[in-house]
């Protein structure tokens, strides 16, 4: 069971309080009707699913209820960075380097 720090509550809590929301930074297109079927499938279903350093969404569902983003190494399951929704995606490559990957 992972230990996750909610950036809004500022506390570490067990994973049971959280719900993972899949890959982060996949914005719903502004004008869906203007998108091709391929583009819509890309938005709906295609995921990077990285083996290694990965940005994903979490929600403190049994806490403050807020969504936030986290960068986690999907091999070691270690969190490398946790940040609030709306903040830009960190440079994954440099985070990976810091983590010695």
């Amino acid at each position: 069971m992972l230990l996750i720090e909610c950036p809004y509550c500022g506390v570490e809590r067990p994973e049971l309080e959280f719900r993972c929301g899949g890959e982060a930074h996949i914005a719903r297109p502004e004008d869906p009707s203007g998108k091709t079927d391929e583009e819509w499938a890309e938005f709906l279903y295609m995921r990077t699913n990285t083996k290694g350093v990965y940005a994903e969404r979490w929600r403190h569902i049994h806490g403050c209820g807020r969504f936030f983003n986290a960068v986690r190494d999907t091999v070691s399951d270690k969190f490398l960075k946790i940040y609030k929704a709306g903040e830009p995606m960190p440079d994954l490559a440099s985070l990976a380097k810091e983590a010695g990957k």
């Binding site: 069971m1 049971l16 990285t50 990965y54 999907t74 091999v75 399951d77």
Partner: peptide, 13 residues
């Protein structure tokens, strides 16, 4: 587990 992982282990819960 609810998250992407390549670790071949999972949580006790």
């Amino acid at each position: 587990d609810q998250f992407v992982s390549y670790s071949q282990t999972g949580g006790i819960h």
